[in-house]
């Protein structure tokens, strides 16, 4: 009985095993095993922030096409180190950058110029007669960035403006790419004070369109020195230089568009 069992099962196993071994030999596919290993190292969020379709593709691109190893923003320094070590190259991680919406003109502060009737999507709305916000550089608030965000780090507030929660942001830049008004930028995570306006229009035009717009008065440059710089009629933060007297600058800004982002409020 035991002999029969052993022979039956053993024989079948042998036949199947030989058949499979032959199949594996004749139908073998050469594949670089490193691709799979590198995919394991990557975070597996498949956010596409690196510009490739998912982590697997990025791993393939690094190994087969020699793509940069520094492209994985969500991974942060730790994963970059791992990738670099795996590939045997040196790479230095800069500070993590997070997205921020440089506009403070919500529905209460920045009026609309017409009654938009259509698809609730910023790109769609922007294409209809130039968008319904009076300010040409203001956040439309239809949430294209929030939908593009793979980790739900962007919220459309009750007053119709997009706000990034920096502690949730993985730095994939998808929102930056989708915003039709180009008002989302990547800033160093440690920085909290920003110019919440992207309008390069002249002061009078900005004033008509928004209560909290930058009118290009240069007071921030005067009081904040090199930590601010002018881009036409728009003040911009120079994140290389820290602001010495932050409170004064915030206080002096006549448009109230230089604001320190409160971590608690955002969270």
């Amino acid at each position: 009985m035991i002999v029969a069992t052993t022979v039956a099962i053993g024989g079948m196993g042998l036949v199947c095993g030989v058949a499979l071994a032959m199949a594996a030999r004749f139908l073998a596919v050469h594949e670089d095993p490193r691709v799979e290993e590198l995919t394991e190292i990557l975070p597996g969020a498949n956010c596409g922030g690196c510009g490739f379709a998912g982590c697997g593709e990025y791993a393939k691109a690094i190994i087969v096409d020699g793509a940069e190893v520094t492209l994985c923003a969500p991974g942060g320094a730790e994963i970059l180190d791992n990738i670099a070590a795996f590939m045997g190259v040196e790479a230095e991680a800069g500070e993590k950058h997070v997205a921020i919406v440089l506009c403070g003109g919500d529905n209460a502060k920045a009026p609309r110029r017409f009654d938009y009737n259509g698809v609730a999507d910023c790109n769609a709305a922007h294409a209809v007669d130039g968008g319904d916000k009076k300010c040409n550089h203001g956040c439309l608030g239809y949430g294209s960035c929030a939908r593009a965000c793979p980790v739900e780090a962007i919220e459309i507030t009750g007053t119709g403006i997009a706000v990034v929660h920096p502690e949730l942001c993985i730095g994939c830049r998808k929102c930056v790419k989708t915003c039709p008004r180009f008002i989302i930028e990547m800033v160093p995570e440690s920085q909290a004070t920003h110019v919440f306006c992207s309008s390069k229009d002249k002061g009078p035009i900005v004033k008509k369109a928004c209560q909290v717009g930058c009118i290009g008065c240069r007071l921030c440059v005067k009081f904040g020195g090199e930590s601010f710089e002018m881009d036409g009629f728009l003040a911009r933060r120079n994140y290389e230089t820290p602001i010495e007297d932050e409170d004064t600058v915030i206080d002096k800004c006549p448009g109230d568009c230089i604001v320190r982002q409160e971590k608690s409020a955002a969270g």
């Binding site: 058949a19 499979l20 199949a23 594996a24 139908l27 073998a28 596919v29």
Partner: peptide, 10 residues
């Protein structure tokens, strides 16, 4: 397993 191997190839 056979299907797996064949499909990977073809």
């Amino acid at each position: 397993q056979l299907v797996d191997i064949a499909m990977k190839r073809f």
